[in-house]
Amino acid sequence: MPWFLYLLECADGSVYTGIATDVAARFAQHASGTGARYTRSHKPVQVLAQFELADRASASSAEYWVKRLKPDEKRALAAGARSLESVLPAPPASAEPEAEAPA
């Protein structure tokens, strides 16, 4: 089942970052005041962007890195000026087999 990283525009101009399997349902929770504590006091206005990820672990990792961005950087991500991959740490280098030394 895919998970999504999503960015919400809040009424005060802040940008909230979260993860969910159903972004529309989660937005409805935030909008009704039953979502995260942050969105209870920073009313969400709209979903700025959502990014599909393979699983919860990938979504949680992406959320960790995106939450560290400044609001203008999150807006650039939402607008497509930055890719999600540009925010995430580079994957570990693949282990290439070492060449055998001549005997």
Rank of each mutant, 00 (worst) to 15 (best):
W3G: 03
F4K: 10
Y6Q: 11
Y6D: 08
L8W: 03
L8N: 04
E9W: 08
C10Q: 12
A11L: 15
G13W: 08
G13M: 04
G13E: 05
S14C: 04
V15G: 04
Y16H: 15
T17M: 00
T17P: 00
T17W: 00
G18F: 05
I19W: 00
I19C: 05
A20C: 05
A20H: 02
T21M: 13
T21G: 08
T21A: 11
A24E: 14
A24F: 03
A25E: 12
A25S: 14
F27H: 05
A28Q: 10
Q29Y: 02
H30R: 06
H30M: 08
A31G: 00
S32Y: 05
G33S: 07
G33L: 12
T34D: 12
T34A: 15
G35S: 07
A36M: 01
Y38E: 10
T39Y: 00
T39E: 00
R40V: 12
K43S: 12
K43I: 05
V45I: 13
Q46K: 15
V47W: 00
V47T: 09
A49H: 09
F51M: 04
F51K: 02
E52N: 01
A54T: 13
D55K: 10
D55Y: 08
D55Q: 09
D55E: 14
S58Y: 01
S58H: 12
A59P: 09
S61D: 02
E63I: 07
Y64W: 03
W65Y: 15
K67D: 08
R68H: 12
K70P: 05
D72N: 10
A76C: 09
A78P: 12
G80K: 13
G80R: 13
R82H: 13
R82E: 10
S83R: 14
L84Q: 14
L84V: 11
E85L: 06
E85C: 01
E85K: 12
P91K: 14
P92A: 10
P92H: 09
P92C: 07
A93S: 14
A93D: 13
A95P: 06
A95N: 08
A95I: 11
A99K: 14
A101W: 09
A101N: 05
A101P: 09
A101Y: 07
P102V: 12
A103L: 13
A103M: 08
